[in-house]
């Protein structure tokens, strides 16, 4: 009963969103409406209401964030908006808050581990880079990414050769995906700023 009511309401919402998407002509408005359509699709999955829903939502979120990033980059290149903006807003909060705030977020993300912890820690790192500025130290991120690959392959061999230590392998793989997601997400934070490369 609850499932049927939810399904009817969500189809109504999808109809409204796609009607707006059809009527829209500006490209940036269409990009924003794509985000709305992603949220509505996730509601459709969440209505399944078992552990299967949770297992389906996580890949949906991964695909959604990568889609938004790729489409926004394509849009920026297509509209020739590649140079930095002139007026960058500075808030008073951005001098005092980010150190403690992003420290808490990164610590909590490391405790969670996996893609969830990587996204949370990546948000903290983006916040820190956005507020404090950055000095183009990409080689650290590349090194971390290489170690993450090594950890991943080590976890794979543990699964294959000594399966009785599976918990150790799960922990190594979780740490590796945390490193990789956090490094990739922190690259986004360096894209906004006053220093032109």
């Amino acid at each position: 009963m609850e499932y049927v009511i939810g399904l009817l309401l969500i189809f109504l919402a999808v109809l409204v969103a796609f009607y707006a998407l059809v009527r829209e002509t500006d490209d940036l408005h269409r990009l924003l409406l794509t985000d709305l359509a992603e949220i509505l699709a996730l509601v459709l999955i969440a209505l399944v209401a078992t552990d299967l829903a949770e297992a389906l939502i996580l890949p949906g979120l991964v695909v959604g964030i990568s889609e938004i990033m790729a489409l926004s980059e394509i849009y920026l290149v297509k509209e020739k908006l590649t140079k930095q903006p002139k007026r960058v807003v500075k808030l008073e909060i951005m001098d005092s808050a980010p150190a403690i705030m992003s420290l808490i977020l990164v610590m909590y993300g490391i405790v969670l581990s996996g893609f969830t912890g990587g996204a949370l820690a990546g948000l903290g790192v983006i916040f820190y880079f956005m507020c404090k500025g950055h000095d183009e130290r990409f080689e650290i991120i590349e090194t971390a990414s290489g170690y993450a690959w090594v950890m991943w392959i080590a976890a794979f061999f543990i699964f294959m050769l000594i399966p009785q230590y599976w918990f150790f392998g799960v922990m190594i793989a979780g740490g590796a995906i945390l490193l990789k997601v956090m490094g990739k997400m922190s690259l986004i934070g360096t894209m906004r700023g006053d220093s032109d490369v």
Partner: peptide, 16 residues
């Protein structure tokens, strides 16, 4: 805890 810490970060992003 995670939601309460993430919401102000999102708001500061929009405030830019």
């Amino acid at each position: 805890i995670a939601v309460a810490l993430t919401v102000p970060v999102t708001t500061i992003f929009i405030l830019l």
